[in-house]
Amino acid sequence: MNSQQQWIAFSTIVRREIRRFMRIWPQTLVPPVITMALYFVIFGKLVGSRIGDMSSLPYIQFVAPGLIMMSVITNSYSNVVSSFFGSKFQSNIEELLVSPTPNWIILVGYVVGGMARGLGVGFIVTVLSLYFADFSLNSLPVTIGIVLMTSLMFSLAGLINAIFASSFDDISIIPTFVLTPLIYLGGVFYSIEMLSGFWQTLSMFNPILYMVNAFRYGMVGITDINIMASFAMVGLFSTILFFFALWLLENGSRLRN
């Protein structure tokens, strides 16, 4: 395939992915918005007003960046895992596998599709959060940079999960037992300064902590973590996941007999 044909193949996959999640918008776009609205109401307004300040910020301002990041992470991940596994389950992944589309285009196409949903939902949730909290953006490059890289990383993770999955249970195990605990313990709702030494150290092994803090820094200017360390961490994980996912596709693991 020449570069023009590769571009057509890539844009076809992205268009198909966007068409898929737009077609089923009541399942893909509405629930995260409702969930986040409830978080804002309960943790931000009702409970938050009694908590007071967190890291010298009103609690709603502290928690909002974490909630936006949470929606980006879960939607990027779940879009790719459900779309790719659905294609495997229905066997229509074969349409792509028999075509001359290179594996790296398949990988990038699915990942960009996942990012489109993750960032789309993130944008809607950001607009929603403006109703509950006032923000003056601290750093646009940091905010945009970290949200893009986070979305990329979890789209890649979702693809790897989908390649290994052989049943619908397998695509819910990681989000339920790994992703959700990591998000909840990743500094979305609290500052790790509140934790004792051991738990602070343990938290440093949670990659989501780095993403949430970098995003919070970009939005409201506070962080528990060094921003460069955050970018380095997300960059490193994304690179590892990218090459691992590509290797799985090249190798045909669980896709070709």
Binding site: A9, R16, S87, N92, E95, V98, P100
Partner: peptide, 27 residues
């Protein structure tokens, strides 16, 4: 290739299935 089992996305329209497949070949 025309496989033995139906392996297209049953939620997609026939026209979209064909245009998408063509896209995978760079058309």
């Amino acid at each position: 290739v025309v496989p033995q089992e139906f392996n297209f996305n049953q939620f997609e329209k026939p026209i979209d299935i064909l245009i998408t497949q063509a896209g995978y070949y760079g058309i």
